[in-house]
Design a protein around this nucleic acid. Structure first.
Length: 795
DNA sequence: TTAGGGTTAG
């Protein structure tokens, strides 16, 4: 049997295949070909030869039969041709549309029914209400709800059950609860609907509480209840709850139900209990495709992408053909392993089998290519999709953001409104990430305004991103105010505010926040320790840093990762304890990374320890073929050699970089003026005020190596000075100085670390202009005031 | 009138 992974990629056909749009027709295309409303209005002139011409009772039988077979097109065509259409017939036609997902069309038909003066009955409304929920049309939903009084159906059991889910789908859980509470009689479906309603608003806990209430009322759960209760357990990641429901499944002998089997596996994998999922999966016989799919997804959710690969292979060995969901579930494993080849193989397979176009699969492919560093392929797929929802747009934005294509990502964000969509919390957090990187404080404030009016103000995920955005845009105070207002602070809220104070140089505040968090009984995680350790490092708090480093293992059982060792090294390097730093590196249980060597190299450069620099250089250069991106490290090494006047070594490092096709990252600086973000490159002359900017820079650069700058060898200054004169940060700051009110701080953001030369110049500017200059580089924020920097010249 | 395995963000 041929397996997917052995189908050596037919990807090369992908682009052309997409163009020609082969594969099954999308439902929307199909329904557009046959629009019952439009055709009825124009008194259809279509040929009727294909439809059976029979007596009215025969017509009715045929209509029911078409609906039962799912032949919506035939059913509606026949309905159009009927002369006398009773409420019963209208109900059947509306049901045909609603049950097949044509919600808007179902509502159109309902309006047509009313226009023609046909009275709806208790069978009409459940379908109409379901259609309102399906297309999230709260306005029509409310109108229909109020009409129920007129028809005396306000207490009808089935109608009320439909209302519960309709309100939940549009996010109005309060209205759903009100309908449920006011029902004179409730049946099992009422309870199931309410339990399910809470799931639509991601409230697993209340859903489970409702499940308990139902059991206390003496009502026995059925398969619908169990599936919802399992979903609720997975939402709150509660393995104990999930296991209790498993016990009910055993007790009620429901284990053979395929949907229950799949939901049970899904619950276990989402509660990070892949072993339980495997154990149950192995008991299933025969194993159906949904169960295999749940396992494939389960492995990548549990960080076992290789097992996901073998699961797909085993599935095919067991002669189960993967369906489109198998591929969708498998693709994240390809991204996790950065295996573009496997992803392309799946893409090719999907084309061969005819799974494409399929907007969810296309979205998963956009995600794959974005995560594997090929946003161009993501764009090709996105541009050619004929159906795009908010998730596909969010995924495209993410693919662009991950690959530094900020402007393009912002364009897709701004286009969202043109397609009758609204950004959701996911969109907002991603856009705030961009704004954080380009210092777009005013744009960030506009997004903050949108968050307030769009009802996401209680979403902790969004609020955490806003706190981070304010801090990264230099407005730490606003970030702190917002943090204090978060009602349900989670661990990320605390980590963010601790980190933010750290990179602004307020280590003591970070430490106090950490202690406050512990006092409130919140358990720190690995990221919390990274935040507090880096804060200690940036503020030179050696004793505290060591204390936290030891405490993370001894008090909280968290093994230090390489990033924590990096902080400790920075800390030791800062105080010049280079022997101890070297000892930490040689004794740590982890393989040193580029970042670790960089930390030590930076320290040796700072403390003029040439012996240590040589040691690091030899170690780095000896592992030049290990596929790690050492770009930053090579640049550091090259600068070090340059400062020492060892030009031969500078050339050696540069040729090494060339041989590995490594290129120094282009320095970019962003500055926001009057709500608009301006970008400067080194030596940039593209700005309309360039002449003025350079003149101001010339004035500032006079006497540039005065008292504030450290001594440097003359040879180095001669070779290097010209190259730093027009560094982007200086251009951006000069533009900021001439474009903002005298006395106001000037804030800029850089994509790489600030160089020592520019650091000197910034101090000088802050002194001569008597203005605060804030430079956020790729690591920390430098607040320059009165000729001094908050980093105390160590960064 | 109610249900499973489907794509996105720290």
């Amino acid at each position: 049997m041929t397996t997917i992974l052995s189908l050596n990629s037919s990807f090369k056909f992908a682009v052309n295949e997409n163009k020609t749009r082969r594969g099954p027709k999308r439902a929307s295309e199909f329904i557009n070909q046959y629009d019952p409303i439009k055709q009825k209005i124009s008194n259809s002139v279509r040929s009727k030869s294909s439809v059976m011409k029979t007596s009215s009772s025969r017509q009715m039988e045929n209509l029911v039969s078409y609906v039962e077979d799912g032949s919506v097109e035939n059913a509606l065509q026949l309905f159009d041709e009927m002369n006398k259409r009773s409420t019963f017939l209208w109900n059947i036609a509306i049901r045909a549309l609603t049950s097949n997902g044509y919600f808007e069309e179902a509502l159109d038909l309902y309006h047509q029914m009313r226009t023609e003066g046909v009275q709806p009955d208790k069978f009409t409304f459940p379908f109409v209400i379901k259609a309102c929920g399906g297309c999230l049309d709260l306005v029509t939903g409310k109108k229909v709800h109020s009409n129920l009084f007129k028809f005396g159906l306000i207490s009808d059991l089935h109608v009320s059950n439909s209302l519960i889910l309709m309100y939940a789908k549009v996010g109005h859980i309060g209205s759903a609860e009100k309908v449920f509470d006011e029902m004179p009689v409730r049946d099992l479906v009422s309870w199931n609907s309410m339990i399910n309603a809470y799931l639509f608003v991601n409230n697993g806990l209340t859903s489970l509480t409702c499940f308990s209430r139902m059991q206390q009322s003496g009502i026995k759960p059925d398969r619908f209840t169990i599936v919802s209760a399992l979903h609720a357990s997975s939402l709150i990641h509660s393995l104990p709850n999930g296991k209790q429901i498993h016990a009910i499944i055993i007790k009620t002998k429901s284990e053979s139900n395929e949907m229950i089997q799949t939901s049970l596996i899904d619950m276990y994998v989402k509660c990070n209990a892949i072993n339980y999922a495997e154990r149950f999966f192995n008991l299933i016989s025969p194993r159906h495709v949904a169960a295999w799919n749940a396992m494939i997804r389960g492995y990548n959710l549990n960080n076992k992408p290789l097992e996901s690969f073998s699961c797909l292979k085993k599935m095919q060995e067991n002669r189960i053909n993967p369906d489109v969901i198998s591929l969708i579930n498998f693709l994240p494993s390809c991204s996790q392993l950065q295996s573009m080849f496997s992803g392309k193989t799946i893409h090719g397979y999907a084309i061969r089998i005819g799974f494409l176009p399929h907007f969810v699969l296309e979205t998963a492919l956009i995600d794959l290519y974005g995560k594997c560093g090929n946003p161009r392929l993501s764009e090709i797929i996105f541009d050619r999709m004929d159906q795009r929802n908010l998730i596909s747009r969010n995924t495209m934005i993410d693919a662009l953001v991950k690959n530094g294509r900020y402007q393009h990502a912002l364009k897709i964000f701004r286009d969202i409104w043109d397609h009758d969509l609204k950004p959701d919390p996911t969109t907002i957090t991603m856009i705030l990430d961009i704004i954080s990187d380009i210092a777009g404080l005013q744009e960030g404030k506009r997004i903050h305004g949108y968050v307030v009016i769009s009802g996401f103000y209680s979403n902790t995920f969004v609020l955490n991103s806003l706190v981070y955005m304010y801090a990264k845009c230099g407005d730490l105070d606003s970030g702190r105010v917002l943090f204090d207002r978060i009602l349900t602070k989670d661990i990320v809220s605390w980590n963010t505010i601790i980190l933010a104070n750290g990179f602004h140089g307020f280590g003591e505040i970070s430490v106090n926040l950490f202690l406050e968090m512990i006092k409130k009984g919140i358990k720190p995680n690995s990221s919390t320790f990274f935040s507090v350790l880096s804060a200690c490092s940036f503020s030179g708090m050696v004793e505290e840093g060591w204390k936290f480093f030891i405490s993370m293992k001894s008090d909280y059982g968290i093994d230090p990762g390489i990033e924590h060792y990096g902080c400790i090294l920075d800390l030791l390097a800062r105080i010049g304890d280079l022997d101890r730093a070297k000892r930490v590196i040689t004794e740590m249980p982890l393989e040193p990374t580029s970042r670790i060597w960089g930390s030590l190299l930076g320290a040796s450069r700072k403390h003029r320890d040439l012996e240590l620099a040589e040691f690091v250089a030899n170690r780095v250069l000896s592992c030049e073929h290990d596929n790690t991106d050492h770009t930053g490290l090579y640049v550091l090494l090259s600068n070090l050699y340059a400062e020492m006047g060892r030009w031969e070594d500078v050339r050696r490092v540069k040729s090494l970089m060339e041989s590995q096709r490594l290129r120094k990252t282009d320095g970019l600086t962003f500055v926001e003026v009057k709500g608009e973000t301006f970008r400067f490159m080194n030596g940039d002359r593209s700005h309309k005020d360039s002449n003025l900017i350079y003149k101001v820079l010339d004035v500032i650069l006079e006497n540039r190596y005065g008292d504030l700058c450290k001594f440097k060898p003359v040879d180095f200054l001669q070779r290097m000075s010209k190259s730093t004169d027009w560094h982007s940060v200086r251009l951006a700051v000069c533009f900021g100085l001439i474009s903002t009110a005298i006395g106001k701080p000037v804030l800029v953001r850089k994509n790489v670390r600030i160089c020592e030369d520019c650091h000197c110049v910034m101090k000088k500017i802050s002194l001569t202009c008597q203005r605060e200059i804030v430079v956020g580089d790729s690591k920390i924020f430098h607040h320059f005031r009165h000729g001094r920097c908050s980093c105390h010249d160590y960064w």
